[in-house]
Write a protein that binds this DNA or RNA. Structure first.
Length: 432
RNA sequence: CGGGCUAUCGUAUAAUGGUAGUACGCAUGGCUGGGGGUCAUGCAGCCCGGGUUCGAUUCCCGGUAGCCCGACCA
């Protein structure tokens, strides 16, 4: 798209109320807008990146048999009362509201209850198992303290997948597939090398769970890494001797690090299926509770983590698969219609634009025809400002069209991450 | 939820118990045109309520909002 048509503007300075690097850069570059503490809106660039992340996750969830659906945000208290999670004493992040007639509703903070109850209509035999359902859905959590920019917010999109298996054996098989899928997701999102499968507390569900933790000083969690096995132990279970008995990890080799939880996988067992009556008949005709698991990733938090981990002093650095555009085409020519600043209603002197602009326009059109996603900086600004914006926005590949390109037919191609410059012809560029 | 700090043009900041300044941005025009250039002119602000005072953006109290530390994070 033409950058002159993009309504968002970059900002030289971050707002003073934003301390987290991810939010500072995402706001400065025009990806997100802060509505209030812990509540952010996604602007066109931000939505493009968010959707890239969602697409990666969706591909990987489909690849392991996930079926996508979309559950309602509004929650029926009756279902939650059956699992004893409606009480504010038990779950302290509820946003609750009321119908006009006074009856209570909740805004969903997770969806074990709703989906388990729903599945009672569809699962009744061992032949119906296993099943894997997931969604990308807005969760609401009344956090007592929102923090870390877009990393811990009160409203956020979450990919939550729930597995329904016959028994523990069938469950474990899928659990490992899901773990492998998660590793592919984080690798494709560009943070694979810094992300560790981490042994953690299972909360109220089970004794242990696994988290995916990305090493980052801005992280809220502390983990202990065993580089040999590419795994880690969360601080919350670090002193539990059973952990070392279970995992075989040598406690003395662990290295402490701060990390961001970018995903988690839980074994739920029959914690939800029993109270909600989700059961099946096995081959002997005996009724058994369904064995469940849950698997979460917050695409927004993942986006923030990528910024946090990969950004440099000039701005954001997106990995290819999650960048809002593949190429940032920066023209240093004067756009048609003359200088933007001198454009006014009384003027009839719309010039045709200079030669640089025609060369850049042509390249823009050809790149688009080749199916390459291009952000075309066709604005009438000085080179320095365009380069600074380009660095800030962080698109992986920048193509510069200036006098040299017109004279030689060779375009300067700059890699955002490394700063490496190559010269390529029009034809070579179409093969990117 | 406990503790701390803060609130001034769109943004970032300064000063002040008595006409609120600067930079960026924005508007108009000129010179410029490969790393946020330059000149001129212009537009734009004291979170809300109460108190003290001749007079409050400034001091005091309350509210609201934001940030940080801690607790919490199924």
């Amino acid at each position: 798209m033409r950058q002159s048509k993009l309504f968002t503007k970059t900002r030289r300075e971050a707002p003073s109320d934003e301390q987290a690097k991810n939010a500072q850069l995402l706001i400065r570059a025009g990806y997100v807008h802060k509505e209030m503490a812990g509540v952010y809106s996604y602007l066109p660039l931000g939505l493009r990146t968010l959707n890239k992340i969602i697409d990666i996750i969706r591909e990987e969830m489909n690849a392991i048999g996930g079926e996508e659906l979309l559950l309602a945000t509004l929650q029926d208290p009756e279902v939650w009362k059956k699992t004893n999670r409606w009480d504010d004493e038990v779950v302290d992040v509820w946003f609750k509201t009321k119908l006009k007639n006074g009856s209570e509703l909740g805004l969903g903070n997770t969806h074990e209850e709703a989906l388990t109850a729903l599945m009672t209509e569809h699962i009744s035999s061992y032949k119906d198992l296993p099943r894997y359902a997931y969604q990308f859905q807005n969760k609401f959590r009344n956090e007592t303290r929102a923090k870390s920019g877009i990393m811990r917010t009160r409203e956020f999109i979450m990919k939550d997948l729930y597995s329904f298996s016959k028994d523990s054996t069938q469950h474990v098989e899928f659990y490992e597939q899901a773990a492998a899928a998660y590793e592919r997701i984080f690798a494709r999102a560009g943070i694979g090398e810094k992300t560790y499968r981490t042994f953690a507390s299972g909360g109220s569900f089970s004794k242990y769970s696994h988290e995916y933790q990305t090493v980052c000083d801005a992280g809220e969690d502390t983990i202990y890494i065993d580089e040999g096995t590419r795994t880690a132990i969360n601080k919350e279970v670090y002193d539990d001797p059973d952990v070392y008995a279970t995992t075989g990890i040598d406690k003395t080799k662990l290295v402490e690090a701060k990390a961001i939880e970018v995903g988690n996988i839980f074994t739920l067992g029959t914690r939800f299926s029993e109270p909600l009556g989700l059961s099946y008949k096995d081959t002997a005709g005996e009724t058994k509770p369904v064995f469940m698991g849950s698997y979460g990733i917050g695409p927004g938090r993942l986006m923030g983590t990528i910024v946090e981990v990969l950004a440099d002093e000039k701005g954001i650095v997106w990995p290819k698969e999650v960048a809002p555009f593949a190429v940032h085409l920066v023209s240093l020519g004067k756009p048609a219609g003359g200088s933007l600043t001198s454009r006014n209603s009384g003027s009839q002197t719309s010039s045709a634009g200079d030669e640089i602009t025609s060369v850049a326009d042509k390249l823009y059109e050809d790149l688009q025809k080749a199916g390459i996603e291009v952000l075309y900086d066709d604005r009438d600004l000085r080179a320095g400002e365009k380069f600074a914006d380009s660095d800030l926005i962080g698109i992986p590949t920048r193509i510069v069209v200036g006098k040299d390109a017109v004279a030689t037919g060779e375009f300067e191609v700059v890699d955002r991450a490394t700063g490496t410059v190559e010269k390529k012809s029009h034809e070579e560029l179409l093969k990117i």
